[in-house]
Amino acid sequence: MTGIGYTLLTEQSGPRSLVEHAASAERTGFDFAVMSDHYFPWLRPQGHAPYAWSVLGAVAQVTSGIELMTYVTAPIMRYHPAVVAQKAATLGLLSRDRFLLGVGAGENLNEHVIGHGWPPVNVRHEMLSEAVGIISALFEGGSVDYVGHHYRVDSAKLWDLPERKVPIGTAVSGPQSVRRFAAASDAMIAVTPESGLCEDWDRASDTTGDRKIGQLPICWGPDRDAAVERAHEQFSWFAGGWKVNSELPVPDSFAAATKYVRPEDVASAIPCGPEVGPIVEAVSSFRQAGFTDVALVQIGMDNDPAGFFAFAREELLPALRAAGR
C-alpha cells in the first residue's frame, strides 16, 4: 500500500503553524510528514521561510509516531555536510528513530545567500556526491577525516547518535543523477511520476526494495474557483520545471518567469477543489510508476487547516488507501 504523507511547507506557513499542522497530520492519520528547507519562499504571496531544522526539533516533540523527513535539504553550500550530519543525528534522537534525511542538489533561490555564486548542475552533483559520502561516514560513528575536490573534514565525529542509523533519501531528476546516487542512498526522492526513474533506480541500487518517495501539490477547498485562484497565486512557479526552478535566484524572478502562466494552466497540473477523485487519480499515477510513498502539499494551508484535516480524515485518506489496496 502506498504511504501517504503530509508536507510541512515552510514557504507558506510560519513556525508555530507548522508545528500545529504536524500534530494535526499525525492525529489525522498521515503516514509521514516531510518538511521543505528554504531560505526564501518561491513567490512573495507564500510569505514565509522559517528555519526548518528548528521547526523539526519542535515537531519531534509534539508528535510520537509519524515519520519525519526533510524534503529536501541541500548539504552543499548553505550547510556543510558535516553539520548536516550532526543535525540529522540529533533529529534522529529527538524523534526516537523517526527521521529520514532527504537531501538534494539544491536551488539557487536558497543557496545564493552565502555569496559564493551558483555552480552548474554537474558540479552540484559532484558536491552532493561528496556530501552524501561524508554524512554516511559520520553516521557510522567513528572519526572522519576527508579531503575532496569540494570539501575538507578534519577529525569530525558525531558524539550523539540514534540507535537506528538515519536513512538517507536523495532527490533525483534523471538517469544521470539516479546512477550517481542510487547505490549510496536508502531511498529515492522525485517530484514527477516517471516510471523510468524507479526502474533506473532499482537497476543502479545495490539493494532491492528501496523506497521511492514522491510529492504531489493539491489545493483542496469547498469552492473550486477559489481553490484554482489560490493555487495560481501561490504555485504558478510549479509550471517552470526543475531545470528552470533550480536556477532562479529570488521570488521576483519566479514571478517574472511565470507571469504568463494562467489559472487554467495550474488547474490542469494540480488537483483543485472539493473532489476526492482527481487527487486519487494523481496519486495513482505515482503508484503505477513504482513510487512507494507520496507526500501531499495542501496549497494555502493556513486558509483553512481544520477543514483540510477533516477532509483528509473523513474522505481523502480512506479513498487513497482503498485505491491503493
Rank of each mutant, 00 (worst) to 15 (best):
G104S: 11
F99H: 05
P75W: 03
V121Q: 12
T73I: 14
E111L: 14
K87T: 10
S129L: 06
M69D: 06
M77P: 01
Y71W: 15
D97Q: 10
P81D: 04
D97F: 09
E67A: 15
L93Q: 04
V121T: 15
L109A: 07
G104H: 01
I114H: 10
V113G: 03
A88C: 13
N108Q: 12
N110P: 07
T90A: 15
G106F: 03
L101I: 10
E111V: 07
R78M: 06
N110M: 04
S129P: 05
R98P: 09
H112A: 04
V83F: 09
V83C: 11
L128V: 06
T70K: 09
M77E: 07
A85S: 08
V83S: 10
G92I: 06
F99S: 03
F99Q: 00
L101H: 04
T90N: 11
A131S: 09
I114F: 11
P120C: 10
P75D: 03
G106L: 10
L91G: 08
R96G: 12
V84I: 15
A88V: 03
I134C: 01
L68N: 09
M127D: 01
H80E: 13
T70Y: 05
K87S: 08
E107H: 13
V113N: 07
T90Q: 11
G117H: 07
E111K: 11
K87N: 13
F99R: 05
H125A: 05
V103Q: 01
R98K: 07
A85K: 02
W118K: 13
N108W: 06
P120W: 05
P119N: 07
D97I: 01
Q86Y: 04
P81H: 07
V132Y: 02
M69L: 14
I66T: 11
E107I: 11
V113Y: 04
M69V: 10
H116P: 00
M69P: 01
L91P: 09
I76Q: 06
L128C: 00
I76H: 00
A89Y: 04
A105R: 08
L68T: 08
N122A: 15
Q86R: 14
R98V: 02
R96I: 03
P75T: 02
D97E: 07
R124Y: 12
V84H: 08
S95V: 10
A89Q: 02
E126I: 02
P119D: 11
L68C: 14
G106Q: 07
L93M: 12
A131V: 00
P81E: 02
G102R: 01
G133T: 04
I134G: 00
N108C: 14
L101W: 09
V121L: 13
H116E: 15
L94D: 11
S95A: 15
M69Y: 09
L100Q: 10
V132T: 06
A85V: 04
V83H: 11
R78D: 05
G102E: 04
N110A: 05
G92F: 03
G115C: 00
V83G: 03
G133F: 02
V103W: 01
P120I: 07
R96P: 00
L94M: 15
L91R: 06
L128G: 02
H116G: 08
S95W: 14
V84L: 12
L109C: 10
P120D: 15
T90F: 05
L68S: 08
L68P: 14
W118N: 12
L109I: 06
E107T: 13
